[in-house]
Design a protein around this nucleic acid. Structure first.
Lengths: 115, 115
DNA sequence: ATATAATTTCGATAGTTGTCGAATTAAAGA
DNA sequence: TCTTTAATTCGACAACTATCGAAATTATAT
């Protein structure tokens, strides 16, 4: 029988509930989630190709929403510290905020074991 | 140097984006997140005490929101398949939906490794 | 049966948010 | 300098949501 180790829930105390809720909220909209994952995918491809740039203009074409909306969503992701954005000339570059990613991983990876 | 294994992002394909977004949305409100964690904690205590009941009335007193709102939030958690509720006489019993919990674990536990 | 207690439903409301089009700013090229 | 391209800001609007009080429902106990 599989049984949960709920000790992990106590980790949430490490990050306050509001912050975690904010992070989850940033990922709770299909378009924003897609955006985040696309950034992650592009970044992965960048690692492979030894060029870690991830331009927004490319990403935008994947989603069926306008530029203002993408800009708005990116700001929410950045505000939740899920991504880090940087302007490179004409373009905007985005990358995953590894620190936050690790935090989420630690909190939400509810390990299970057997009993 | 720590490097991310972004392969996990592909796992998201297993669950469609909308479903994952819906689950995250259900957890994206402080009160609902607190509710979910409280259910988990109470459930854990239940495991320890060999009585796995988790009554809502108890939980309600922890949060500073009224009964109608709690009812509403519980329905959203249940609708996202995060919890399973069952009526036991006068009371409502809630427990974590382990299946969904495992799914989230699998998708969001972005393992990292060294290179 | 009636009273009490737990929960839900309903209706309303205030606040939030995803989206767009138009206008603006920033940067690159001609 | 003028033009084009990328991105942002602004204003607006429709849709959604968290919350409440009041009323209804469900089950227990007296």
């Amino acid at each position: 029988m599989t049984v949960v180790n709920f000790d992990n829930y106590r980790n949430v105390k490490l990050m306050d509930t509001k912050r975690l809720a904010k992070i989850l909220k940033a990922l709770s909209h299909p378009n924003r989630l897609e955006l985040y994952m696309e950034i992650a995918r592009k970044q992965e491809a960048g690692f492979r190709a030894e060029e870690e740039e991830c331009y927004i203009a490319d990403i935008m074409s994947c989603l069926s929403i306008g530029a203002p909306t993408v800009s708005h969503h990116l700001k929410e992701l950045a505000n939740a510290e899920l991504i880090i954005t940087e302007r490179k000339g004409k373009y905007l570059v985005a990358r995953i905020n590894e620190e936050t990613r690790r935090e989420i991983e630690q909190i939400l990876s509810l390990k299970s074991g057997d009993r």
